[in-house]
Design a binder for these strands. Structure first.
Lengths: 350, 350
DNA sequence: TTGTAAGCGTTATCAT
DNA sequence: ATGATAACGCTTACAA
């Protein structure tokens, strides 16, 4: 009962108890099972280990093998459901492969500091999501195993959602409904995916001869509060848009709320399209039409890519630069979009 | 330019370049700065380290110091915004203290497997949130540094939200509005905090001579879908409750949606109270009256408690069992609650 | 098949 | 003030 201040149980302890040498224990307990050990010896070791409550010391293993069996993931803010999903997907894949995940948020701690500590911890790889891949400290990351999530193709490999396609899908949907006056709500940002959503939307609209007028393109933070501010501005416009694409669902939720409060009927008077398809989207009323970005899948793929590259590592200088994997976006039509209200156009006086 | 397959830069390399011994480098680079080294020597070492791009190997440090400077956190599912907040709060505190956070979700991988790998990685502490603290493998955790989040007081210390108080606040609010027929929507679960929310509500109602009739207490999953199922059942009841408390905001969101769809006006015909106060709550229309549980604060406190216990560790057998810290709940009155509709009571024929 | 010996990159305890 | 020297607990040749 009264254990004398439990010291760690090591392979030496197990060896002693089993009456074998320490390396033999190591062979039995850790090895790829392709270690050739006499069955009865093996058995003795296993029994001794269990009786002693032996726990592998991964730290020691890491030191000698130069692999930490840990990977890091850096995201802006876990409170954004989108990033929580990305992390969740990555964690799952990593854990299933026996890798630990070191979580880093850049909300309060600068990105490069996180990178520094991850490097010091000898992580076998790092995943970076949406935090300016272009400006990463290349020197520091010399030889590091890096995978970018939702960043532009770069000196590092990565996985990305089809952000341009997301904007395009939103635009095509609204165009097909017959809309002609469009608004856009989103932040001024250097996050690639966010920019591409906007570009996909604007370009597609433009390709049909329409445009998002400069007054109807509002720069607002990518939050629900931002969406409210933006939509209020749009509603105050001389000639309101009949359809608005929002950079993400949070913004769309804010926009939707302002409409409801101001008795602007959605979708009859105003169509709203979001992006991401977080759970929130289907809880609002009307339910939000949005473009689904498979965040969890994105994280999972990034982790898989990272694990693959780690395996193939050490095989000399790698040809690297595999093509960027694109994860398809998907339009989810729900209740916040419809045909535009009858326009009071010059030709048809009301 | 063409670096010859960069081998790791070690303190030996730095020592050689600086013309000092390896331990001296260690003294300069790592130590609490209270190392007594000649200023010029120190300078030479620092310069050499920078020129070589030296990066501390925390793994090696861990091995010798028997501390990994890492902590683990185990949560059910990061996709629940509540847990994302808990993790976020913990990560922040840990990172600020130089600790890495190993993230573990029990959604797909069993809890005890996570614990095992955490232990193998020699984490300095573990935080466990809402996953059955009572049933934790005590033997395995012998001597481990554990902090429970939102679990009942136990053989391990912990921090918890005032879950009973949350239920009580919801009840008092509805009682003060004059409600007399109550419903409750929540899961049958062994998660302590969830049970206590229910108990706080039911007991408080009961203390005023009212009760949640068995038909109005619906067991549904703690999800939006569950809330929908539950509310549909309540609406179908002979004598509907006029006020419903939901175990969390997700459930409340589902309930609210069903009401809207069925043209049951909230709050005029039906009052709904949620719990957690996740962002969603203020994005719905009407905005959700709810009991705020400071998830982020909960995570932050848990991390602080853990860090404190780690410091005070090694000081022999610890008296442990410090009192459980309770984080206060707070009622947030928004738009989903109001006085009950005029009742068609037996005494006053319509 | 198994034991001996070496070493991973630190920190820590000594002498010097 | 600094340099040998010895751990930390493990994996991996290599020898027996």
């Amino acid at each position: 009962m009264a254990k004398p201040r439990t010291r760690r149980v090591t392979t030496h302890d197990v060896a002693e108890r089993a009456g074998v040498s320490q390396p033999t224990v190591s062979l039995v307990l850790s090895r790829n099972a392709r270690a050739r050990v006499a069955p009865e010896t093996r058995e003795r070791v296993i029994v001794a280990a269990r009786e002693l409550g032996y726990v592998t010391n991964v730290i020691a293993r890491s030191l000698v093998s130069s692999r930490s069996f840990a990977i890091g993931i850096i995201v802006p803010d876990l409170r954004n459901p989108f990033f929580a999903d990305v992390v969740s997907g990555a964690e799952r894949v990593a854990a299933e492969s026996g890798y630990a995940v070191l979580l880093c948020e850049t909300r309060e701690i600068p990105r490069d500091r996180h990178i520094q500590t991850l490097l010091e911890r000898q992580v076998d790889g790092i995943m970076v999501d949406a935090i300016g891949g272009a400006s990463l400290p290349a020197a520091m990351l010399e030889g590091a195993n890096l995978v970018l999530i939702d960043e532009p193709p770069n000196k590092w490999p990565g996985v990305a959602s089809d952000a341009f396609g997301a904007g395009r899908l939103a635009a095509e949907h609204l165009l097909s409904l017959g809309h002609e006056r469009f608004g856009f709500l989103g932040p001024a940002t250097n996050v690639h995916a966010i920019r591409m959503r906007e570009r996909g939307f604007v370009r597609t609209i433009g390709g049909r001869g329409f445009a998002v007028s400069s007054t109807a393109l509002r720069r607002v933070p990518a939050t629900a509060a931002g969406g409210q501010v933006g939509m209020r501005a749009l509603l105050a416009l001389q000639s309101r848009p009949t359809a608005v694409f929002c950079t993400n669902d949070l913004v769309a939720a804010g926009a939707l709320k302002v409409c409801s409060v101001d008795s602007v009927r959605v979708p009859q008077d105003m169509s709203i399209v979001g992006c991401d398809d977080i759970e929130l989207a289907s809880l609002l009323l009307p339910e939000l039409t949005t473009v689904a970005i498979p965040a969890r899948e994105l994280g999972a793929r990034a982790a898989r890519l990272l694990l693959n590259r780690m395996r193939s590592d050490g095989a000399g200088p790698r040809p690297d630069t595999r093509p960027q994997r694109m994860v398809a976006s998907r339009l989810v039509i729900r209740g916040s979009t419809a045909v535009p209200p009858k326009l009071k156009s010059p030709e048809s006086p009301s």
